[in-house]
Amino acid sequence: MTELVDPEDPAAGLAAVVALRRLADRLEDSQVERAMRAGWSWSDVAEVLGVTRQAVHKKHARRLVAAGVALRRR
């Protein structure tokens, strides 16, 4: 292992924050897409994520339409 994974090193700790945000973003994008492909409603996805339906719709609808996902109305 290199110094990159030294937990005593704040530079490594701060980089981990960035890495975790990237991971959360990637997981959100992929898992919302999976749920909607599986026929979930926006409301169901929003409830699991703990955000409003409007928020999740605003963030993902255009991308999923472009990806060819058949979206339910509600």
Binding site: L4, V5, D6, A16, A19
Partner: peptide
């Protein structure tokens, strides 16, 4: 780099 930084966490 991403993998290594995640490993820190």
């Amino acid at each position: 780099e991403w993998e290594q930084s995640l490993a820190t966490a």
